[in-house]
Amino acid sequence: MKPKIISTLFFILITFILWTACEKIDQPLKIVDQKDFPVNPDDTLYFVDSIIVDLKQVLLEDFTGQRCVNCPKASKLLHEISDFYYPRLVSYTVHAGIFAEPVPGTVFGTDLRCPLSEKLYFDFGIFATPMGQIDRVLFNGLRQIFTTNWQSVVDQQMQIPNVVNLKLKNTYYPKHNSVIVDVEADFISDLEGQYNLVVYIVEDGIVTAHLNNDPTIGPDTLYNFIHHNVLRGPINSAYGDPINSSGNITAGLKFAKQYTFPINPNWVAENCNIIAYIGKKDPVLNLVDIIQAAELKIKTEQ
């Protein structure tokens, strides 16, 4: 019987080896690449830039107005803090309120407000300018933070460990003056609560007049004041898109979104920046406690 056993085993072994030597393919066609681009071949020229933020960055919202006499000083302070923490302090200016209203026929005729800035101004109950919100956290029981406390609150927020990495990619199509924004959030810690991803567009380097009462900065009217990162509008919405629908986020969660945004022709695209941040949903104030922010300039040429 021994040869029979050997031959049977041999048969089974060879059959098994050969049986495994075939591939059953249930889905013959699989996606290997996907991209969006303008149809007109002339429109396919684009410029890409991207950034990955893997340290905690802080968001400072500077509520201001061009006829706010104290605001140039606040702007100067913001720059000093920003330079110190470069590039970890992300900021934009929110032109809203009575001092942001333009005065037609004067040097203050340019309107730097937008519906979003007015909404934020009123939603967060801003009662004076200059005023800041830093990561929209509470300081002394308030989220509105006077300039005198900006440094200390920024210092405090900079010490918070990072919980989410944020990747931002801008693809700009000059022909259509449009930008495709890809945002990817990679959570590295467990978090409680519901979080939203917000993406805004801001314009830097707008030159208009500004009232001033700080002689160290200049005369009462600064005719060529350079406004930095003026909030122009939302890429998605004022309070963004939900990242999680349930109550918690588990480390390892990846969230990616792509937005296509045509840039207003009145804006200077090469001066525009995209700002993305993640905040916690709040039943009253919509979105508070910013946990991460990123900023990336729109690249408009090689």
Partner: peptide, 19 residues
Amino acid sequence: SVEWNKQTVYELKLPNNVG
């Protein structure tokens, strides 16, 4: 009013081994 194209590339998975 700008026409865009979503281009998807599919690979036809051919079997290396056929039994």
